[in-house]
Amino acid sequence: MPVISAAAMEELRLKTKKLRKDIITMIYQAASGHPGGALSVLDILVVLYYIVMKIDPENYLDPQRDRLILSKGHACPALYAILADRGFFPSSLLAGLRKIDSPLQGHPDMRKIPGVEMSTGSLGQGLSVANGMALSARLENSRRRVYVILGDGEIQEGQVWEAAMTAAHYRLDNLTAFLDYNGLQIDGWIRDVKSPEPVAEKWRAFGWHVLEVDGHDYTSLLEAIGRAHSNKGAPTMIIAHTVKGKGISFMENQIEWHGRAPNKEEYEQALAELEK
């Protein structure tokens, strides 16, 4: 892992504030979308897209690039904001989110947006696809790495555990998965809807190298990714404890913000908070 200076870290924090504003603005303009999960996953994506991943917006189809799959596709405003900021497509497109004729679909479409590696939205499918990409890298003796982000509610899908077995069986140590563990799903707290606990023990029992971190702390995330990279013979699951709606006081840990857009007053309040 590259060593990040304090100044660079501060710059990244400011960048993330801007990205949070972009996310809220996009969803406000679309008048629909999923702010809660986009805000909980953002810091993980920032660490990957601005520090860790080997990607080049100018050459975004480079076969040797690292790959990221946002398996919890509904959080895509976070991904779109980052891809635009990194120059994969013009920021002016962000205003089209969820609107007719816009490439920015409600859930990501790999055929419409440069930098989106996989179309997702139907939960539970991303880890299988990531396994396929990791196997591809191995077949080609490539050092490229594959990252995949799952939602905590998403791991209720059976396919996730089929894929968990596959990754461990094939010893995919070039694969790093993240669990965006914000504790909430549409119908409520996931521990009430259908608890996935004990989560870490489940992944360990499936043969994974498991780490737990604060999913909003860059230093901890970087340290965990570094350990994932140096681990051999098994895939790594980084359980990232996050806050749904992170960064906007009235959205934090509130299930109603899973899938609704702010009204004008709420939007202005959110922006004001992010200006601080």
């Binding site: 299988s128 990531a130 396929g132 591809s136 089929e162 596959t166 069986h169």
Partner: peptide, 17 residues
């Protein structure tokens, strides 16, 4: 193994690469 859903996803990942 006996996991067709996972097989289709894995195949998609291989094709994407």
């Amino acid at each position: 193994g006996i996991s067709e859903a996972d097989m289709m996803g894995t195949a998609a990942g291989l094709a994407a690469s």
